[in-house]
Simulated assay, not measured.
Amino acid sequence: MAWMYLIVGGILEVGWAIGLSFSNGFTKLVPSIITILLLIISFYFFAKSMKMIPIGTAYAAFTGIGAGGTSIIGMVFLGEEVSTAKILFISLLIFGVLGLKFSSNDTQENSPGNMEAE
């Protein structure tokens, strides 16, 4: 369940990162409100995931999902430049996140920051 929280948080990070662009430096009210809400909800899920996933793994995966997803959305929907190099490095990011997931030994019992397990 922790990885599901982390994935949801990472996807919401994509939303608030794109929202920052649409808010025009927080000068447009509706995009600014949506961005702030997505940011809060994203960090809520990220924080929940860290109860069971070590912080280094969780943070790397969270930012990887956000960076990769934001780049993909930018290229597919927002007219950003598409290049072989970008696709290669986004693929490396995605494989890195998957590698973290499959090499992670994350349980509530071995997470040092988890107060519930104590």
Results as ranks from 00 to 15, higher is better:
residue 55 I to D: 12
residue 10 G to D: 06
residue 43 F to K: 10
residue 53 I to C: 06
residue 95 F to C: 14
residue 55 I to L: 15
residue 49 S to G: 01
residue 101 K to T: 13
residue 93 L to R: 08
residue 86 K to E: 06
residue 96 G to D: 00
residue 85 A to M: 11
residue 98 L to V: 15
residue 46 F to K: 03
residue 92 L to P: 02
residue 94 I to D: 09
residue 62 F to H: 00
residue 33 I to K: 07
residue 77 F to K: 03
residue 28 K to D: 11
residue 7 I to N: 00
residue 66 G to A: 13
residue 104 S to C: 08
residue 33 I to H: 02
residue 43 F to A: 07
residue 103 S to E: 15
residue 69 G to T: 00
residue 13 E to R: 12
residue 97 V to R: 06
residue 96 G to V: 03
residue 107 T to C: 04
residue 91 S to I: 14
residue 12 L to F: 00
residue 9 G to F: 07
residue 27 T to M: 09
residue 2 A to I: 05
residue 19 G to M: 04
residue 40 I to G: 06
residue 5 Y to G: 02
residue 81 E to S: 14
residue 68 G to Y: 07
residue 26 F to H: 10
residue 5 Y to Q: 03
residue 117 A to N: 10
residue 113 G to H: 07
residue 58 A to G: 10
residue 51 K to R: 15
residue 71 S to T: 15
residue 22 F to H: 09
residue 112 P to I: 08
residue 75 M to E: 05
residue 93 L to N: 12
residue 91 S to R: 09
residue 31 P to N: 07
residue 71 S to K: 12
residue 28 K to V: 12
residue 30 V to P: 09
residue 10 G to I: 05
residue 100 L to D: 04
residue 22 F to A: 09
residue 79 G to Y: 00
residue 17 A to W: 09
residue 114 N to L: 01
residue 30 V to L: 13
residue 117 A to M: 05
residue 108 Q to D: 09
residue 60 A to L: 12
residue 4 M to K: 13
residue 24 N to A: 13
residue 75 M to A: 09
residue 54 P to N: 12
residue 8 V to A: 14
residue 49 S to E: 02
residue 87 I to E: 08
residue 113 G to T: 02
residue 97 V to W: 01
residue 53 I to R: 06
residue 20 L to S: 07
residue 30 V to H: 13
residue 88 L to E: 06
residue 110 N to H: 04
residue 110 N to D: 07
residue 100 L to S: 02
residue 59 Y to V: 07
residue 11 I to C: 08
residue 68 G to R: 01
